[in-house]
C-alpha cells in the first residue's frame, strides 16, 4: 500500500524526517505496549476487535475529511451530517420500506437514502465554498447547525429504534470471521489510498492543496474538484452515520455530536497538514485507531469520562506541536 507523505517524495533522511514519516507508527506501538502492560485484558482478541470496530465509524468519515484537508479546506459538519443520514436510513427502513418485511431491497433503499442525504449536504458545502466564496470553515459550521436541526426535526427529537436484525448485519455481521465494519473499513482505505496515490484526480487533490493557482493555470477545474471532494466527504459522513445507526440499532437525534473533532483529530494525528497538500490517508487510519486506543485504555483504567475528553484534546495538541517543531527544524516548509 502506498505510504508516502505525498506523491513521489524524496528528501534527506535525517531523524526528523523519519519522525515525521514514521513517528505515528511508533506512537501506535508505544500505546499498544503501554496498554498491554497496564491492563491484562487489553491484548485479548475480543478487545482488539472491539477497538477496531469502534474506531471504524470515525475512521470511515476521516477518509473524506483527509481529502478535504489535503485541499486546504475543512469540514466541521460531518458529525451532524452523519446523524441526519443515520436518521433518514432508520426512518426509511422503519416507515417507508416496511422494516424487516422490506427484505434486502428495502434495506439497500434505506441505506442509499442515507448516503444520498450525506452526498447532497456535502455537495451543498462544496457549492457554498467554491461558488459562494465563503470559507469552508464557516460554511460547514453553518451546515453543522442546519444538519443537526434537520435531524431533530426529522426524528421529532426522539430516537428511531428497533430497526431489525438485517440492518444490524452492517455492524455485527461477519464475513468469514472478520467483522463487517472492518471489511468496509479496510476496503475503503485501500481504495482511498489507491485513488490518492495512483490516479490523476488524486494527484490533483494534493497539487491543488499545495498551489491552487498553479493547478488552475494548468487548466484544471479546481472548483469542480473541491465540490466533488466535499460531496464525497458528505457521502462518507453518511456512511459513518449509517454504520453507527446499525451498531446502536437506533438513530439517536444527538448521534455523532462532536465527532467533527475526533475526525479532524484522526486526520491531523496522521500527519496531514491543515495547510493542505501533504498527508496520507493510511496514516489517518492509524490516527483514528490511536484515538480509539486512548478512549479504550482510559476505560480499562477506569478513568472518569471527563478526564478522557481532556486527555484526548491534550494528545492532539501535543502531537501537532511536535509535528510543527519538527517541520520547522527541518525547514523547507513555506508557511
Amino acid at each position: 500500500m502506498p505510504e508516502s507523505d505525498a506523491p513521489a517524495l524524496e528528501r534527506r533522511r535525517d531523524w526528523r524526517e523519519l519522525a515525521l514519516g514514521y513517528g505515528i507508527y511508533l506512537v501506535l506501538a508505544l500505546f499498544v505496549l503501554v496498554m498491554a502492560l497496564l491492563s491484562p485484558n487489553f491484548l485479548r482478541p475480543g478487545n482488539l476487535l472491539n477497538i477496531a470496530v469502534q474506531a471504524s465509524t470515525v475512521a470511515v468519515i476521516a477518509v473524506g475529511a483527509t481529502m478535504v484537508i489535503l485541499l486546504a479546506e475543512i469540514d466541521l459538519s460531518v458529525g451532524s451530517v452523519a446523524a441526519l443520514s443515520g436518521a433518514v436510513t432508520a426512518g426509511v427502513l422503519k416507515f417507508a420500506v416496511g422494516g424487516a418485511a422490506g427484505g434486502v431491497v428495502g434495506l439497500l433503499v434505506a441505506i442509499a437514502a442515507g448516503l444520498a442525504v450525506g452526498t447532497v449536504l456535502g455537495a451543498i458545502n462544496g457549492v457554498l465554498t467554491v461558488r459562494g466564496g465563503i470559507p469552508s470553515f464557516i460554511v460547514t459550521l453553518g451546515m453543522l447547525s442546519i444538519a443537526r436541526g434537520l435531524t431533530l426535526l426529522y426524528t421529532g427529537g426522539r430516537p428511531i429504534f428497533a430497526l431489525g436484525p438485517d440492518f444490524s448485519v452492517l455492524a455485527y455481521g461477519r464475513l468469514a470471521t472478520v467483522p463487517v465494519p472492518i471489511v468496509i473499513l479496510v476496503t475503503l482505505y485501500v481504495l482511498a489510498a489507491l485513488f490518492l496515490h495512483t490516479t490523476q484526480l488524486g494527484r490533483y487533490i494534493y497539487a491543488a492543496g499545495t498551489n491552487r493557482r498553479a493547478v488552475a493555470l494548468a487548466g484544471i477545474n479546481v472548483d469542480r474538484l473541491k465540490l466533488g471532494v466535499f460531496a464525497l466527504a458528505g457521502a462518507l459522513a453518511g456512511l459513518g452515520g449509517v454504520l453507527l445507526t446499525s451498531r446502536l440499532d437506533s438513530a439517536q437525534p444527538t448521534a455523532a455530536a462532536g465527532w467533527e473533532l475526533d475526525v479532524i483529530a484522526a486526520v491531523v494525528l496522521g500527519g496531514t497538514s491543515l495547510y493542505g497538500g501533504r498527508g496520507s490517508v493510511v496514516k489517518t487510519l492509524v490516527g483514528a485507531i490511536i484515538l480509539q486506543l486512548i478512549s479504550n485504555g482510559l476505560n480499562l483504567l477506569n478513568v472518569q469520562a471527563y478526564w478522557q475528553q481532556i486527555t484526548k484534546g491534550g494528545v492532539i495538541l501535543l502531537a501537532l506541536l511536535l509535528e510543527r517543531s519538527l517541520r520547522r527544524a527541518r525547514g523547507g516548509e513555506s508557511l
Partner: peptide
C-alpha cells in the same frame, strides 16, 4: 506556478498527465 510537492515530471505533465 509550480506545485512544490510534485516532482519535475509531475509539474511538466500537470493537467495533461
Amino acid at each position: 506556478a509550480l506545485v512544490d510537492t510534485l516532482d519535475a515530471a509531475g509539474n511538466i505533465f500537470l493537467g495533461r498527465e
